[in-house]
């Protein structure tokens, strides 16, 4: 059977994404190999005897050539085995699982609030282009993106946790916590993340729609006597989806990959903290695993953006 051209494109796009991920895994592996120092030495410390070091190297398979080790590592990854942490011998996959889930939870709520809000603000900015609502929206969102995240974080903490005591300043979460408590605990980091990603998405929505507003079909809609906001939302927005989705996905990726600072500020037990801790301990396998997960999230979201862009194009969905 012949595939629909869109299905063809999607298969191509997904295959490309997987290939990219494979290439990234090579880079991550190669990068960690280039780092100075010897893993066995790092584990056993300066006082280890040469014999003990040799034994450990043998045991960890460090004497094998690099490509053999790479494929052994990749084989493990494909089976969900990310290896063991050097610092404490724990299984990385299970140690990271909880952390990843926490980060996803935070990113999810930040996204649920920021994406619709950014798009709505973008639509409103277009509706009142050049008038005060547009200027206020741009001024506020651009100010919050211009401040470093930790400054926004500490200001929010000072106002909402210290002064008015609405939320807690430390976002501790633990197993067995109720859903409501969990939401309450992450309120401040979510707020900071929303403020950080809002401007970029809002500005792109505004620019992409303004670009489309010059089209003849927008004039047609105006000459039908439609309300300005109806024209923007119904006629302009559907034709501006592709560029908007691309920026939305970049920001979603940032919510997962770039939250290190916010997690540290609010002492939130997510991937960012996990990564920072293990970098400090020079725990290469954990850093590798984190890098791979971040790369997968990044590539996956960008792939999703492409898929949505393809699906939002009626010429591709409905060929002649």
């Amino acid at each position: 059977m012949k595939l629909h051209p869109v299905a063809n494109l999607l298969v191509q796009r997904i295959a490309l994404g997987l290939l990219l991920l494979l290439a990234v895994s090579v880079l991550i592996f190669a990068g960690t190999q280039l780092l100075p120092g010897d893993v066995a030495q790092a584990i056993l410390g300066q006082s280890a005897t040469p014999q003990a070091l040799a034994n450990l190297r043998e045991q960890l398979g460090l004497n094998d050539p690099a490509h053999v080790r790479y494929f052994r590592w990749l084989g493990g990854v494909l089976q969900g085995d990310l290896g063991k942490a050097l610092s404490n011998g724990q299984d990385i996959a299970s140690a990271m699982g909880g952390r990843l889930w926490n980060t996803m939870f935070l990113a999810f709520w930040a996204a649920v609030i920021s994406v619709p809000l950014a798009i709505m603000l973008g639509l409103i900015a277009v509706r009142y282009q050049g008038r005060w609502p547009d200027k206020v929206i741009s001024a506020v969102t651009l100010s919050t993106i211009s401040l470093p995240e930790f400054v926004v974080g500490y200001i929010a903490m000072f106002l909402l946790a210290v002064k008015y005591r609405v939320f807690t300043s430390v976002s501790m979460v633990y197993d067995g916590m109720s859903f409501g408590d969990r939401i309450h605990a992450i309120a401040l980091p979510v707020l900071v993340l929303v403020l950080v990603v809002l401007a970029h998405m809002m500005r792109m929505t505004r620019a992409a729609i303004l670009n489309v507003m010059q089209s003849a079909y927008v004039e047609t809609a105006e000459l039908k006597g439609l309300r300005p906001f109806t024209i923007i939302a119904r006629h302009a927005f559907p034709n501006a989806i592709a560029p908007i989705v691309n920026v939305v996905m970049l920001n979603l990726a940032y919510l997962v990959v770039g939250v290190v600072v916010v997690e540290v500020v609010f002492v939130y037990p997510g991937m960012g903290q996990f990564l920072v801790d293990h970098v400090a301990k020079r725990d290469i396998p954990v850093v590798q695993a984190c890098g791979l997960v971040f790369a997968a999230v990044y590539i996956g979201l960008n792939m999703l953006a492409d898929v949505i862009s393809i699906l939002s194009n009626p010429r591709l969905r409905h060929p002649k």
């Binding site: 089209s215 003849a216 079909y217 004039e219 047609t220 809609a221 105006e222 000459l223 039908k224 006597g225 439609l226 309300r227 006629h235 559907p238 034709n239 939002s312 009626p314 010429r315």
Partner: peptide, 29 residues
């Protein structure tokens, strides 16, 4: 003006290809 445009007076443009919204079905428009 909104009550008269698209009701009392309507418009046929030179380039229908540009004047139709590419993302919407013809009947809808």
């Amino acid at each position: 003006l909104r009550t008269l445009r698209g009701h009392e007076v309507t418009y046929v443009a030179q380039s229908a290809a540009a004047a139709f919204n590419p993302a919407k079905k013809l009947m809808e428009q």
